[in-house]
Write a protein that binds this DNA or RNA. Structure first.
Lengths: 345, 345
DNA sequence: CTGTTAGCGCTTTCAA
DNA sequence: TTGAAAGCGCTAACAG
C-alpha cells in the first residue's frame, strides 16, 4: 500500500496522488475524488518513516530519562510523561521515552538522539550544575527545554521551573505562624540545580522570618529521608519542623517520625515539595507544596512543537505552586500560638 | 555529517564507507581504519530515519495508552512505561508512548501506527471483550503482546497476565482465616477482560470456602470506590470485607470507611489488587495483591524484540502474584478466630 | 492542472 | 576488495 499502487491503478503519476492526498488545491476535483476513493479502497496509510526522511523532520518529541541505576526513580518523571503524552494525543507527533546513562557515554547518547534525527525536540529534566548536556544542545542549536533552570549558564535557553522562592517562603510562613522557630531542610547533595535553589530559598526565607536553620543532605529516596529524619530526631536541640525537597524523602521522613514513637505534626511537622498523589493518602496526609508538573510539561511540549516551524526566542516560564495544608503540620507541642509570635519583617 | 561527506573526503565510494562502518569483513583493514578515523573526526552519527526506511524496520516499540478522557488513569500504565523503558535502555530501540482514543477512530489510529511503520511491535494493555484491536492485529500479522488475556478469542495471540484465580483464592483464604464469612468485590462494569476474570475468580474462590458474596460495579476511580463502599456500608447485612479489583477503587473505599467513622480492618477489611506503592503508605497500610507489572512488561518487550527477527510462536506467560498482608485486613469485630472456623474444602 | 526529475541518507544486490 | 546502480516511499522543484 504505497502511493505507487494508487498511481498505477489509476494511471496517474505518483506526484498527482501525493498532491491529491495532501489536499493541495492545484489538482482537479475529479482527479482528487478518484484518488481519494482509491486510497480509501485499498486502505492506504502513508509510510511515516519515508515521510520523515523526505521532510527532514522526525515528528517526535523525546523525553530523556536519566538512566543508570536511577531511571524512573521518582513519580515526577511519570507525571512528566503523562503531561507530554496528553498534549501529544491527537497530533501526528510521537512521544519517545529515551534513556541516557550519566557518565562518559552520555554525550554520545545525546548526539545519537539529536543528530540521528529521531526527534524534533527534547525535554531535559533534572538539570545539573555546569550541565554539559545544556552546553551541547545550545551549541548545535537543537530545540530543547530544560526542567529547572541553571541561572548561571552563559547562554540563554528555554526552561520551565517553579517559583522556588515564593513556594518556600509560603511554606516557611505557614510554619512560623504555627509557632515553629527552628526548621530543617532535608535535601540532597547530588549535583542537581533544583536542590541548590531550594536550599538557597530556604535560607533566605528563614532569615526573613528569624527562624534558625539546619540543612541535611542525602539521596533522593525514602530510605535516605528516613535516615536524615532519624539523625534529626537524635539531636537534643532538634528542630520542630522539616521541609523535604522531594516526595520520596518526605515519605521516608514521616515514617521515621512514626517509628520513633512520635506524632507527625505536634512532635515534628513535615512539608514536602510534592507531585505525588501518595502524600494526600498517607498517615497523616502530608502538607505539600504542589508542583503542576503535568501542566508544565504540556507547556514545554507546546514550545517544542512551535519551535519546529520557527525559531522562537527561548521560552522561560515560572510556575506558581500551591501550599496544600494537611495534617502533617501543626503547632509544636508546648508552644505558643501564632498570635503572640514576633513575626519578623 | 553523512556517509557522503566521509566518502568525499577520503575519495572512496559511499558503499565502502557504509561497509567499513558496519564492520563488514570484506573491506581492507587499511581502508576501514581510514574510514573509521574520518568518521570519528567529523563526529559522524548515522541518520536513524534513513536507516529505518532502508531496512524496513522501525527500531521502536509502541505502548498504546487508551486515550480520551481516561488516558493514564492508573499508575498501572506508568509502571508499564517504566518496565518497558528499563528493558529498552541501552538498546537502539525506542519506546514510543502512543495514544488511541476509543471509538470509531480507534481502528484508524491503529492502522496508522502499524502500517505507517512507526514501530516494530506493540504493547496493548486493557484488553476488552471481543476486542477489535486484537482482531485487526492478528489479521495483519503484526507483532503485539496483550496485557490480560481474552481467553475466548478464536486466534491464539501473545499475552502476559497474572494468575488471577490463584491470587484471588489466596486473598479469600486470608480473609476466611481471619473469620470473614461475607465478602464483597468492588469491580467495574466497563468492558475489560481483567474485571470479568477477577469477578469469576472471586465467585469461584468464595464458593470453595463457603463465603457469601456481593459484587458491586462502578468505574475505575477513587470516587467510584468511595461510592461503592458507601453503598456497602449502608446495608444492614453488610459484608465484613471487600476486595477491590484496582488500587484506585481500593483507595476510595478505604477513605469511605474512615469517613463513616469506622475502622478499616475490624469494621471493614479491604484488600486491593495493587501495583501502586501508594497503598503501603496509606492509613492504614493496605493489604494488597502485588502484581509484578514492570517485570511483566520487560518480558513482553523481550518477546517483541525477538519477534522482529523471527516469527516465534505466540508467547503466553502467567505470573504469580504475592499477597502482602498489611493492616487493612483484620478479624471482623465480634467474630471468632480462625481456629474454630469450619473451613470448607 | 499534471508529469518528470531529483533526492532525503542509507543499505544491498550485482559487477568488476 | 571496491564501486556503480537501484531503491526503501515519499515530497518538492521545475517544467509543460
Amino acid at each position: 500500500m504505497s502511493l505507487r499502487q494508487i498511481a498505477q491503478s489509476l494511471g496517474v503519476s505518483i506526484t498527482t496522488v501525493s498532491r491529491a492526498l495532501a489536499g493541495y488545491s492545484d489538482v482537479s476535483a475529479a482527479t482528487r475524488e478518484r484518488v481519494v476513493a482509491e486510497a480509501h479502497r485499498i486502505k492506504y496509510v502513508p509510510n511515516e518513516v519515508a515521510r520523515r526522511l523526505q521532510r527532514g523532520r522526525a515528528d517526535g518529541i523525546g523525553f530523556i530519562v536519566p538512566g543508570g541505576a536511577r531511571g524512573f526513580d521518582d513519580r515526577y518523571f511519570l507525571n512528566m510523561v503523562e503531561g507530554a503524552w496528553w498534549r501529544l494525543s491527537g497530533t501526528e507527533v510521537d512521544l519517545l521515552v529515551l534513556s541516557s546513562d550519566q557518565g562518559p557515554t552520555e554525550a554520545l547518547t545525546y548526539r545519537r538522539i539529536v543528530e540521528g534525527g529521531r526527534v524534533d525536540g527534547l525535554l531535559v529534566p533534572r538539570i545539573r550544575e555546569n550541565d554539559s548536556r545544556i552546553d551541547y544542545l545550545c551549541e548545535v542549536g537543537f530545540p530543547f527545554i530544560a526542567f529547572g533552570a541553571e541561572p548561571s549558564h552563559p547562554k540563554a535557553y528555554a526552561y520551565v521551573d517553579i517559583d522556588t522562592e515564593a513556594a518556600t517562603a509560603e511554606a516557611m510562613r505557614h510554619l512560623a505562624e504555627l509557632g515553629h522557630r527552628s526548621v530543617a531542610l532535608l535535601s540532597s547533595d547530588e549535583p542537581m540545580v533544583f536542590a541548590r535553589s531550594r536550599e538557597a530559598a530556604f535560607l533566605k526565607a528563614a532569615a526573613g522570618l528569624g527562624i534558625s536553620t539546619t540543612i541535611l543532605c542525602g539521596k533522593l529516596a525514602e530510605a535516605s529521608g528516613f535516615a536524615m529524619m532519624s539523625e534529626l530526631l537524635a539531636r537534643p536541640d532538634r528542630p520542630t519542623a522539616a521541609i523535604s525537597i522531594t516526595d520520596r524523602i518526605g515519605i521516608g521522613a514521616v515514617r521515621a517520625v512514626r517509628e520513633h514513637g512520635l506524632t507527625v505534626g505536634p512532635d515534628m511537622s513535615v512539608i514536602t515539595f510534592g507531585d505525588n498523589p501518595v502524600v494526600a493518602f498517607m498517615h497523616p496526609p502530608m502538607t505539600a507544596i504542589s508542583i503542576p508538573v503535568q501542566a508544565m510539561t504540556a507547556h514545554a511540549v507546546d514550545y517544542l512543537l512551535a519551535r519546529r516551524d520557527r525559531a522562537d526566542a527561548p521560552l522561560t516560564r515560572i510556575w506558581k505552586t500551591e501550599l496544600i495544608v494537611r495534617e502533617s503540620t501543626a503547632a509544636p507541642r508546648g508552644r505558643s500560638l501564632a498570635s503572640d509570635l514576633p513575626l519578623a519583617v
